[in-house]
Amino acid sequence: MWYYEKRLEYPINITTSNAKLAQFIASQYGGPDGEISASMRYLSQRFSMKDRKVAGLLTDIGTEELAHLEMVSTIIHQLTKGLSMEEIEKSGLGPYYIDHTVGVWPQAAGGIPFNACEFQVKGDPVTDLHEDLAAEQKARSTYDNILRVVNNTPEVADPIRFLRAREVVHFQRFGEALRNVQEGLDAKNFYAFSPGFDAPVTCPPNAK
């Protein structure tokens, strides 16, 4: 279900390498609240959404997060181009370099590798959408943290600001999705049944 266009969602042209920034920004690639986590979360959760609009939204936002993970890995790649051994050792990138040279590998800034424990798929639409709202805020906060460090480097700060703005918009979309799901629930008791498990499947209007 995927094909690609040969352009990034937002242009990235970093001319000066910086090993320390690369290490920090890696958290938005392979960190707990990063773009890999976001895309895997949404693309996995969509299967339990009986509301077609919400399944569609999760697929579309999950796809956009794939584009974002590509942007972040591009930033890391460009920031590590042409680094000298001295820069690598002085910046703290030494341990990463030993295992990965300047390849792009998904881990958090602190070193924990990306893993599925960093996101949840509960199979309950209300629960999962709350997780998604939280995920977008966590990502926004991480971008805020990164921006405090890269604020004075426009060629890095620019795409980061774009990514941060997208997190805020996704948060709003998930709020609307939650409202959509709640409209299909028992208005007197949201938890009376879970559409992810208890409700019958319905096909789209033109399925037959």
Binding site: K53, G56, D60, R173, E176
Partner: peptide, 8 residues
């Protein structure tokens, strides 16, 4: 498109 997903 994202907007239309929840406001078709």
């Amino acid at each position: 498109a994202l907007y239309l997903d929840t406001h078709p």
